[in-house]
Simulated scan of single mutants.
Amino acid sequence: MPPKKKNIDFEQSLSTLESLVNRMEQGDMTLEESLQSFEAGIALTRECQARLAAAEQQVNKLIEDQGNITLQTFDAETGDDE
C-alpha cells in the first residue's frame, strides 16, 4: 500500500491559496508561472472544498447524535435559517 500524502491543515492550504492569488494579481508572472500557479490554486481549492465538506458531514453527524437538535436549512442569499 503506498504511503499517504502528509495532509496540510485547512488554514495553511487557504493561506497558500491566498498567496498564489495575490502573486497572480500582481501580473509579474510569466505565462508558464501563471499556468503552474493556476493549476496549484485549483488543486488547493478542491482540497479546501473537500475539507469543508468533510467538516460539514462531521458536524451533521454530531448534531444527529445529540437527538434533541434538528437541522435547519440555511439560505445563503438572505443569511436566514428557514
Rank of each mutant, 00 (worst) to 15 (best):
T16I: 02
T70Q: 06
A76W: 04
G67V: 00
Q66M: 00
E39I: 05
E33H: 02
T45E: 06
I63H: 01
S37F: 03
N22K: 15
D28P: 03
T16Q: 12
L17N: 06
D80A: 09
D9R: 06
A40Q: 15
D9V: 06
P3G: 05
I63C: 05
I42K: 07
A53R: 09
L71H: 07
P2Y: 01
G27V: 01
S34W: 09
M24Q: 08
L31E: 08
M29E: 15
E39S: 15
A43Y: 02
L20T: 03
I69D: 00
E82K: 06
L62C: 08
A40P: 13
F38L: 15
A55N: 13
L17R: 08
A43S: 12
I8C: 12
L14D: 05
Q72I: 00
E18P: 07
G27P: 01
E39D: 15
L14A: 11
T45D: 10
L62F: 00
L62K: 03
L52P: 08
K4R: 14
S15C: 01
K5M: 11
F38C: 15
M29Y: 06
I8H: 02
K5P: 14
A43D: 12
L52S: 07
K4N: 12
C48Q: 07
C48E: 12
M1N: 12
L44T: 00
A43M: 04
A76R: 05
L44D: 01
M1K: 08
Q12K: 11
L14I: 03
T70N: 06
S13H: 07
A53F: 09
